[in-house]
Protein backbone atom coordinates (compact mmCIF):
# COMPACT_ATOMS: atom_id res chain seq x y z
CA UNK A 1 0.00 0.00 0.00
CA UNK A 2 2.84 2.34 0.90
CA UNK A 3 4.46 1.70 -2.47
CA UNK A 4 1.26 2.64 -4.27
CA UNK A 5 1.02 5.89 -2.29
CA UNK A 6 4.64 6.72 -3.10
CA UNK A 7 4.05 5.91 -6.77
CA UNK A 8 1.04 8.24 -6.85
CA UNK A 9 3.24 10.91 -5.30
CA UNK A 10 5.71 10.60 -8.18
CA UNK A 11 2.84 10.62 -10.68
CA UNK A 12 1.74 13.90 -9.11
CA UNK A 13 5.23 15.38 -9.45
CA UNK A 14 5.53 14.55 -13.13
CA UNK A 15 1.87 14.96 -14.21
CA UNK A 16 1.97 18.76 -14.76
CA UNK A 17 4.82 18.53 -17.22
CA UNK A 18 3.65 15.35 -18.97
CA UNK A 19 0.03 16.43 -19.38
CA UNK A 20 1.05 20.01 -20.14
CA UNK A 21 3.33 18.79 -22.93
CA UNK A 22 0.60 16.54 -24.35
CA UNK A 23 -1.82 19.49 -24.40
CA UNK A 24 0.76 21.83 -25.92
CA UNK A 25 1.61 19.28 -28.61
CA UNK A 26 -2.04 18.90 -29.64
CA UNK A 27 -2.76 22.64 -29.37
CA UNK A 28 0.32 23.72 -31.33
CA UNK A 29 -0.26 21.10 -34.02
CA UNK A 30 -3.88 22.23 -34.52
CA UNK A 31 -2.87 25.87 -34.66
CA UNK A 32 0.05 24.98 -36.95
CA UNK A 33 -2.26 23.11 -39.32
CA UNK A 34 -4.45 26.15 -39.52
CA UNK A 35 -1.39 28.34 -40.20
CA UNK A 36 -0.29 26.00 -43.00
CA UNK A 37 -3.77 26.11 -44.54
CA UNK A 38 -3.88 29.90 -44.29
CA UNK A 39 -0.50 30.17 -45.99
CA UNK A 40 -1.95 28.36 -49.01
CA UNK A 41 -4.62 31.02 -49.31
CA UNK A 42 -2.69 34.20 -48.53
CA UNK A 43 0.24 36.02 -50.09
CA UNK A 44 1.61 37.63 -46.93
CA UNK A 45 1.46 37.59 -43.12
CA UNK A 46 2.96 34.10 -42.82
CA UNK A 47 5.12 35.12 -39.85
CA UNK A 48 2.22 36.20 -37.68
CA UNK A 49 0.32 32.96 -38.41
CA UNK A 50 3.28 30.80 -37.41
CA UNK A 51 3.97 33.09 -34.43
CA UNK A 52 0.54 32.76 -32.85
CA UNK A 53 0.40 29.04 -33.61
CA UNK A 54 3.08 28.66 -30.89
CA UNK A 55 0.78 30.17 -28.22
CA UNK A 56 -0.31 26.81 -26.73
CA UNK A 57 3.32 25.97 -25.88
CA UNK A 58 3.07 28.06 -22.68
CA UNK A 59 1.27 25.29 -20.82
CA UNK A 60 4.25 22.97 -21.19
CA UNK A 61 6.52 25.63 -19.65
CA UNK A 62 4.06 26.24 -16.80
CA UNK A 63 3.94 22.46 -16.21
CA UNK A 64 7.73 22.34 -15.91
CA UNK A 65 7.73 25.10 -13.27
CA UNK A 66 4.97 23.34 -11.25
CA UNK A 67 6.96 20.10 -11.46
CA UNK A 68 10.04 21.79 -9.95
CA UNK A 69 7.86 23.25 -7.19
CA UNK A 70 6.35 19.87 -6.32
CA UNK A 71 9.59 17.97 -6.63
CA UNK A 72 10.83 16.94 -3.18
CA UNK A 73 11.51 13.83 -1.12
CA UNK A 74 8.33 11.78 -1.55
CA UNK A 75 6.92 10.14 1.61
CA UNK A 76 3.52 8.84 2.69
CA UNK A 77 2.68 12.17 4.30
CA UNK A 78 3.16 14.41 1.27
CA UNK A 79 2.42 11.96 -1.59
CA UNK A 80 -1.40 12.33 -1.52
CA UNK A 81 -1.17 16.11 -1.58
CA UNK A 82 1.40 16.10 -4.39
CA UNK A 83 -0.71 13.64 -6.36
CA UNK A 84 -3.86 15.75 -6.00
CA UNK A 85 -2.25 19.07 -6.90
CA UNK A 86 -0.07 17.61 -9.65
CA UNK A 87 -2.69 15.59 -11.50
CA UNK A 88 -5.34 18.31 -11.42
CA UNK A 89 -2.85 20.96 -12.53
CA UNK A 90 -1.72 18.69 -15.36
CA UNK A 91 -5.27 18.00 -16.57
CA UNK A 92 -6.16 21.70 -16.43
CA UNK A 93 -3.01 22.67 -18.35
CA UNK A 94 -3.59 19.94 -20.94
CA UNK A 95 -7.21 20.92 -21.65
CA UNK A 96 -6.40 24.61 -21.75
CA UNK A 97 -3.59 23.98 -24.28
CA UNK A 98 -5.87 21.89 -26.53
CA UNK A 99 -8.65 24.45 -26.47
CA UNK A 100 -6.22 27.31 -26.90
CA UNK A 101 -5.04 25.51 -30.04
CA UNK A 102 -8.64 25.45 -31.30
CA UNK A 103 -9.04 29.16 -30.52
CA UNK A 104 -5.81 29.99 -32.33
CA UNK A 105 -6.86 27.89 -35.35
CA UNK A 106 -10.14 29.82 -35.53
CA UNK A 107 -8.28 33.13 -35.07
CA UNK A 108 -5.95 32.30 -37.97
CA UNK A 109 -8.89 31.24 -40.14
CA UNK A 110 -10.80 34.43 -39.36
CA UNK A 111 -7.89 36.88 -39.64
CA UNK A 112 -6.79 35.30 -42.93
CA UNK A 113 -10.04 36.49 -44.48
CA UNK A 114 -10.15 39.77 -42.54
CA UNK A 115 -6.61 40.86 -41.63
CA UNK A 116 -7.88 43.91 -39.73
CA UNK A 117 -9.36 41.70 -36.96
CA UNK A 118 -6.09 39.89 -36.23
CA UNK A 119 -5.61 41.53 -32.82
CA UNK A 120 -9.17 40.96 -31.71
CA UNK A 121 -9.32 37.41 -33.02
CA UNK A 122 -6.53 36.26 -30.68
CA UNK A 123 -8.35 37.67 -27.61
CA UNK A 124 -10.23 34.37 -26.95
CA UNK A 125 -6.92 32.47 -27.07
CA UNK A 126 -5.41 34.99 -24.63
CA UNK A 127 -8.34 34.50 -22.24
CA UNK A 128 -7.79 30.73 -22.32
CA UNK A 129 -4.13 31.42 -21.55
CA UNK A 130 -5.29 33.48 -18.55
CA UNK A 131 -7.06 30.44 -17.10
CA UNK A 132 -3.91 28.36 -17.48
CA UNK A 133 -2.02 31.04 -15.53
CA UNK A 134 -4.66 30.91 -12.75
CA UNK A 135 -4.08 27.17 -12.35
CA UNK A 136 -0.33 27.70 -12.41
CA UNK A 137 -0.32 30.44 -9.75
CA UNK A 138 -2.69 28.63 -7.40
CA UNK A 139 -0.83 25.35 -7.85
CA UNK A 140 2.28 27.19 -6.61
CA UNK A 141 0.34 28.66 -3.66
CA UNK A 142 -1.21 25.32 -2.65
CA UNK A 143 2.02 23.37 -3.08
CA UNK A 144 3.56 25.56 -0.37
CA UNK A 145 1.16 23.94 2.12
CA UNK A 146 2.19 20.37 1.29
CA UNK A 147 4.56 18.95 3.90
CA UNK A 148 8.22 18.65 2.86
Amino acid sequence: METVILMLGWVGVFAPVALGVIGSTIGCSRAGMSACGAMLDTESGYGKFVGISAMPSTQAVLGIVVMFTLNREINTLNAPGIFGVGILTGIALMLSAIHQGNSVASAINASKNKPEIFGLSIAPAAIVEGFAVFVFVFALVVSGAIPQ
Partner: peptide, 11 residues
Protein backbone atom coordinates in the same frame (compact mmCIF):
# COMPACT_ATOMS: atom_id res chain seq x y z
CA UNK B 1 -7.59 17.76 -36.89
CA UNK B 2 -6.66 17.60 -40.56
CA UNK B 3 -9.83 19.45 -41.57
CA UNK B 4 -8.24 22.45 -39.87
CA UNK B 5 -5.66 22.69 -42.67
CA UNK B 6 -8.25 22.22 -45.38
CA UNK B 7 -10.78 24.70 -44.01
CA UNK B 8 -8.05 27.28 -43.37
CA UNK B 9 -6.87 26.88 -46.96
CA UNK B 10 -10.28 27.82 -48.37
CA UNK B 11 -11.01 31.51 -48.92
Amino acid sequence: DQYITLMSALP
